[in-house]
Design a protein around this nucleic acid. Structure first.
Lengths: 377, 377
DNA sequence: TGCCTGCATTGAAACGATTCAATGATGCGA
DNA sequence: TCGCATCATTGAATCGTTTCAATGCAGGCA
């Protein structure tokens, strides 16, 4: 079975050191005794501290061998206590159930792994209390930085102000806070909104229905702004009767339901439209379901676009044309930002928070089609 | 906006203690000085240690007030160093990309939260080296227990043997190891396999195609066994020409592709079947896509079943009839198991690992239908 | 020879909490 | 009044590392 494993470059992996004794932990003291040097020297060698440049090569070798032989593993807690570095980052999700979160998590995890940091994971379940309780726990564990993934969340600013007071760099993904203490990484929603509409317009669609995002989501307004600006720039008229808005909701998967219901409403109006631009992918999937049920074929009779490009969108039938958020990259960037902050803190430099807007990307799949080929109904 | 927050019972949440000074951490010593008692007493009071029963109520009160006033927050690292308890659990996923993982994670996170434990998150990306490196890191952080979520993974047994040597209880979800050092929580695959087929059989289907799981997955064999046993018990004949098997793969989302391709193969054989039982949901979705593309309507011409009940299954069109794994409960149970182990370790009791099989549940949706109503082709 | 410099190593003091044995203080029975 | 529990509190050691100041030792230079 061995050859079935994927490989990340290091063919056999690190040999997992085996504790030589039974249950006891191997401490630095043990290494010191075994190698015949003092704990101080061992520490210097094993960490390659500045003082290590004075240590005789032979000594280094003996110590390293002893460490490997005994299966020494540094005690992260003890180390922290002295050095103030926990090598730990807090990772708070507003609701892990949102398919938006998985790729972001991938990106974050991967970037942290590169820096040998370890994430402490928290899921707020959309509950403010839980969020605050977790923050408390993360502070107790002395995370060196904090990353919050949310696309909506109301938090007193002072809660996060605590962080900056303690000099803990923080970044949010998919959401931003007033003030400049907390960094943020977001997709450029306005551009994304424009892209979707531009695509439909290029396909020749003129009668377009819209399902806007809920008011509480920070993404909703700029996306709509992108739509309006583009429509204005090409002289496209938006029929207010064809514009509906999702209600506020706490369930990240409610978009499906909402899209379904609102599309039914649209259909009842008996106003013709050849394309529908949905707020996000889930909404689009709900819309497609409603259209299909009503006998309106997608994309033959009606084109539909989503937003986000969650995993599901490639698998649905028809597969969904959507505006992709570079979720994994957003995670990576957030990590890089806070890592910069940590480094600055160590070197006692000043450091300014960052607001990053990432470019979305149009992904064309099967749910949109040239209006010329659309049959009229 | 305040009222938009969902509530978890504690209406205003814990008041977030504000550090009173600027940047300095508030230590136990500070609380001691402020309240006029010794650090020892403070520790005893704040932890409600056994000795606390001797402490005068007035003292307790003064100390607690001082702690709150100063915004004292215990230092988890320092505490660990003495008490050996990190209040941390390692959480390793073989591949977070698998939709299987999200609900499991929810369950685990929630259960840990109840016990005030904090998870350290790791994603192995299907790579053995990564898995081992993470294990190393988790051990350095002295996690008190380990939970591994995988539905396949080849690991030398000695890697996890290290854990039991150090008395770290471990549990796996969706996967099990030989030997009895590691606990496991799995769905009862055999029963699940039977359920799916029984459902199709009850609907009157007799010509049934099967897409079996890849050999490398531990789930594949027992599911198939359930199928065979049921078929035998009711005298249903399984046509070998209608049985295909997914190839081994590392990509948890490859099932869709695989299901799609194998279904095309099935269709080319020109052998009639009125139902298709797929290994899991993704495979089923791929199959449905292929059927639809070939003009075979689901469920009108062909019923399809999946397995797992991942989030997507309820949203696909048609929604998928499937065998549900109680993923969240599986996460919860795994946590309870290792918590038992931790407790046993503290009390120096013996403790035996547990192998749990959970009952699956048939979820009937729109992708299956009575054969009587199926039009023949 | 005496002194200084650079090299190699180490002693010992933190870091912030926990915990056990020890210390006063009090009350009570003899 | 003494001795002895019981109660209330605390001093001091300890956990495993890191880090700074200190030490001993060569060799080189005056």
């Amino acid at each position: 079975m061995d050859e079935l494993w994927q490989n990340d470059g290091n063919p056999r992996g690190l040999p997992l050191k085996r504790a030589s004794g039974k249950n006891q932990m191997v401490t630095m003291r043990d290494v010191a005794e075994d190698s015949g040097f003092s704990p101080a020297t061992v520490s210097i060698v094993l960490n390659n501290a500045p003082l290590a440049r004075y240590i005789a090569p032979a000594t280094k070798k003996r110590i390293e061998e002893a460490a490997k032989k005994l299966g020494y593993r540094p005690n992260a807690m003890a180390r922290f206590l002295r050095s103030k570095r926990s090598h730990t980052v807090g990772l708070v999700f507003f609701d892990i159930t949102d398919p938006f979160c998985t790729p972001v998590m991938r990106g974050i995890e991967n970037a942290l792994y590169q820096s040998s940091y370890v994430p402490i994971f928290a899921d707020a379940h959309n509950q403010r209390n839980r969020f605050e309780r977790y923050l408390e726990m993360l502070l107790e564990h002395h995370v060196e930085a904090l990353i919050v993934v949310a696309n909506w969340l109301v938090v007193d600013i002072h809660v996060l102000a605590d962080l900056s007071k303690r000099n803990i760099p923080a970044a949010t993904i998919g959401w931003e806070l007033p003030g400049d203490t907390v960094s943020s990484v977001m997709v450029d929603n306005e551009t994304g909104g424009r892209m979707a509409l531009e695509h439909l317009h290029q396909l020749g669609h003129r009668k377009i229905a819209f399902i806007r995002g809920p008011k509480m989501l920070i993404d909703s307004a700029p996306r709509w702004r992108g739509v309006q600006k583009f429509a204005h720039s090409v002289g496209l008229e938006i029929d207010p009767a064809l514009v509906l808005q999702l209600p506020d909701s706490f369930d990240p998967n409610s978009g499906f339901e909402g899209g379904h219901r609102l599309t039914e409403e649209l259909l009842q109006k008996k106003k013709k439209f050849t394309a529908l631009m949905a707020f996000d992918d889930l909404t689009a999937l709900g819309a497609i379901r409603a259209l299909t049920k009503a006998g309106v074929k997608v994309p033959e009779h009606c084109s539909v676009t989503g937003f986000d490009d969650v995993a599901m969108s490639a698998l649905s039938a028809p597969s969904l044309t959507t505006v992709r958020q570079p979720l994994e990259a957003m995670g990576t960037n957030a990590v890089n930002i806070v890592m910069e902050g940590i480094k600055a803190g160590l070197e006692k430099r000043e450091w300014n928070s960052v607001r990053q807007k990432m470019n979305p990307e149009l992904v064309i799949r099967d749910s949109t089609r040239d209006v010329a080929h659309s049959s009229t109904d």
